[in-house]
Amino acid sequence: MTYAGWILLTGILVGVTCGMIGALLVLRKMAMIADAISHTVLLGIVLAFFVTQSLNGLPMLIGAGLIGLLTAFLVQWLDSSGVQSGAAIGVVFTSLFALGVVLLSFVGDGVHLDVQHALMGQISYVPWNTWSLGGINLGPKAVWLLGGVLLLNIVTILLFYKELKVSTFDPKLAASMGIPIVFLHYLLMSLVSFSTVASFDSVGAILVVAMLIVPGATAYLLTDRFGFMIILSACLGALAAVMGYGLGVWLDVSIAGAMATSCGILFALAFLFSPRQGVVTKWWNRKVLKESVNHP
């Protein structure tokens, strides 16, 4: 595959992986906790490097997963202790993220991990960081890592589809049916952590928030069907990646930034022209209704 092809494939995998999990976060009104986890996993990555002296996929996933769970636990604990929900997220998010940034300064210049890379990502470098087996180049590590996390997300959603659907729309009913609400909550937080760390090389800790939330928010404006919203969100994430790549190359700007911008463009179009909830659509329908009343 060509250099451009690897970049485009990586972007699409980021969009699909984050998009399908983002749909669940939007439906559960947990967008801000995703923002927090997308930053605090930096601490997990740095701690994993200190332990293993390696940036291989598995240690990073384990470190990010543990810190993601810790973030969700601390937010829930502070919230149940009387701290306002938004404040709890802010305290945990800033504290753990700041600690990760401080520890990151001790990593060293010889390692492909620094503050700029962690915050903004650099998808243009992804094709050069490859895996080899027996002298055979298997392609970029980021593609394999994203592919593995995407497969994990798909399998998890399929296995717990009914439980996720019931607990998302009616937690009390789910609890009365014996569905493990707490387990599903932390399972979802783990998937968010894995999806975030898999996207680090491509879009970084800041722009991954756009991939996690905006496609799901866009899909929410376009459909009210649970399963279709997950699929649509993944497709919108992939579309934003393709649009962003083209926009980034055309304007010679950050490709990751252009992908996030494309997410915003798609959301704006849905917000204005969605068949049911679009601002322009509602205005036009009111205008047509008013004219039909005045001129029967």
Rank of each mutant, 00 (worst) to 15 (best):
L266W: 02
S80P: 05
Y245Q: 01
S274E: 08
A260Q: 04
K290R: 11
W283G: 13
M1Q: 13
N137P: 10
I12P: 03
S95Y: 07
A64Q: 05
I37K: 03
Q116N: 13
R276C: 02
V182Y: 13
M229Q: 11
F271L: 14
G244R: 00
A270F: 07
M1E: 14
Q116M: 07
S190K: 05
G57M: 07
W131C: 04
D252I: 06
C263G: 14
A198Y: 03
W6H: 14
L251H: 11
I89N: 04
K287M: 13
I255Q: 10
G63Y: 02
G246M: 06
G135S: 07
L55K: 02
I62E: 09
H295A: 12
V197T: 01
V209Q: 04
G90Y: 10
H39L: 12
G65P: 13
D114Q: 05
A256W: 10
G68F: 02
L99K: 05
A238L: 12
A64P: 11
V203N: 00
M259S: 12
G135Y: 06
V293K: 07
P275C: 12
F226Y: 13
I45T: 15
K287V: 12
G178T: 12
G147E: 03
L55P: 01
A205G: 06
Y125A: 14
T94L: 15
L9Y: 01
D201F: 00
G57L: 05
S85W: 14
V280N: 03
V16K: 02
R276E: 15
S292A: 14
G121M: 04
L164N: 08
P127W: 09
G264D: 11
Y125M: 13
D114E: 05
V208R: 02
M177H: 05
F106M: 09
I213Y: 08
Q122A: 08
L289C: 01
M211S: 15
S105C: 01
S95C: 07
S233G: 09
L96N: 00
S95D: 07
V166H: 06
S233N: 04
I62G: 08
L251I: 12
S95K: 00
F160V: 05
L99C: 09
P59K: 06
W250G: 02
L25N: 12
L9Q: 00
A36E: 04
N294P: 03
L212A: 05
D79W: 11
W144H: 15
V253N: 10
L173P: 03
P59G: 07
T261V: 09
A98V: 11
L113V: 08
F97P: 02
L69F: 09
M120P: 03
L9K: 01
G100F: 08
V197D: 01
V107G: 08
L152Q: 01
N285H: 13
K162P: 12
L221M: 15
V203D: 00
F271Q: 01
A64T: 09
V280D: 10
G178N: 13
F183G: 05
G90D: 11
S254P: 14
I157S: 08
K172L: 12
I62S: 07
P127E: 10
L212V: 05
L55N: 00
